[in-house]
Write a protein that binds this DNA or RNA. Structure first.
Lengths: 167, 167
DNA sequence: CGCGACCCTTCACGGTCGTGCAACAAGCGG
DNA sequence: CCGCTTGTTGCACGACCGTGAAGGGTCGCG
C-alpha cells in the first residue's frame, strides 16, 4: 500500500479522508506551523525542509506498519472475533458464518456457501440466513467491520470505513 | 511512563537496552547522520536541530503508545492479586480460579478448566462456579479488572477500562 | 407506465437454555 | 458471639435461534 504525502495544514481535509480510509500518510509540515497531533499509528509527520533520506525513512516505516496492520480480523476457536484491539463473542451459528466470510475476506461469498458453513447438517428455512446475517452485521459493526450485500450474488466482509463506490 | 531522549548514533548501546526493556524512546539524530531504522512502535526519531514543540509532539505520541501497551496482573503465592499499584487478597478457591484466568489472560477459559483449577479433587454442585465468579468479579473490580462472560464458552479476564464491543 | 416476481431487510414472537444474583446455611477462627 | 469463606437453592433475565410477516428495492414484461 502506498503512503500518501500531503502538506500540512494545507491539505487538512484530505488528511481526514485518508484517516477514515485507514490509509497511511506522512504530513509535510510547512515553515513554522505547529506539528499536528498524530491521529493513529498509520500517521506521521516531518518538518520541511527535510532531506530526501529522512522522508524516505518515515515513509518506509509507515508502509511497513500498513502492511502489517492490514491483515484480516481473527476468529479464535472460542468464537471471539478480534479486530483493531477490540473483540466480540459470536454465537455458534454466527461464528461459522463469520468463518466462511473470513475465508474469503473482502470477496463475495454466496448464500449457498454461507448456508453450508452455518448449518453443515442441512439448513433450516431460507430466512434463517438473512436473519443471522442481520444479527452478525450488528455485532461486527462495533469492530468497524461491515458486511455488504451484493445483490443476487452473496455477501462480503470488509472494514466499515471504506465506502465502496459500489454497483 | 517516561519517554527516554537519547543521541543517535552516540548512545547506540543505551537504545538497545531500552528497546529490550520495552521503554519508549526518542532518538535525536545528530548533524547529517542517516536516520535510524525504527525498531518498534515505541521508538521514534527527530533530526537536530529541532524546535521544542516538535520534540514534545513526538514524545507525547510515544507516551500515549506506551500507556496503551499494558502489563498483566500478578498473583503471588499468598493469594495477593496486584495490578496497577493496588492489590486485593483472594480466598483460596478464588485464588485458584484467578490463576487459571491469568494463565490465559485476555483469552477465554472454559468452565470445565475453571472447575478443575478451583476444585482439583472434584467439583461441588452446578452453581458453585457461577457464584464464585460473581464474588471474584466484585473483588477484582476495585483493581479495574473485569471478568467477561462469553456465553456457552467460558470467561475471560481483561482490563476494565477497555470497552470491548462485547457480548 | 403499471404490475408482479424476486431479493433482501427488518421486526416481533416463542421456546429453550445458560447465566446472574439474592438469600440462606454450615464450618471455622478469633 | 461475630466475621469470613464456602456451598446450595430458586428464580429472573437475557442470549440464542428459528419462524412468520411486513415492507422496500430492482428487474422484466405487458
Amino acid at each position: 500500500m502506498d503512503v500518501a504525502l500531503l502538506r500540512w495544514p494545507l491539505e487538512r481535509d484530505r488528511r481526514e479522508e485518508l484517516r477514515r480510509d485507514g490509509q497511511p500518510r506522512l504530513l509535510l509540515v510547512e515553515g513554522d506551523e505547529a506539528p499536528p497531533t498524530v491521529a493513529d499509528e498509520l500517521e506521521d509527520w516531518i518538518r520541511l525542509p527535510a532531506a530526501d533520506a529522512d522522508v524516505q525513512a518515515r515513509v518506509s516505516v509507515l508502509a511497513g506498519r500498513a502492511q502489517r496492520s492490514e491483515p484480516c480480523p481473527e476468529l479464535d476457536s472460542d468464537g471471539l472475533l478480534r479486530f483493531g484491539g477490540r473483540w466480540v463473542s459470536l454465537p455458534p451459528v454466527e461464528a461459522r458464518l463469520m468463518g466462511a466470510l473470513l475465508g474469503r475476506y473482502r470477496a463475495v461469498v454466496s448464500r449457498e456457501a454461507l448456508a453450508r458453513a452455518g448449518w453443515p447438517h442441512g439448513s433450516p428455512g431460507r430466512n434463517a440466513l438473512d436473519v443471522h446475517m442481520l444479527r452478525l452485521r450488528r455485532r461486527v459493526a462495533g469492530l468497524e467491520l461491515a458486511i455488504r450485500t451484493v445483490r443476487s450474488r452473496g455477501y462480503l466482509l470488509e472494514r466499515a470505513a471504506t465506502e465502496a463506490a459500489s454497483g
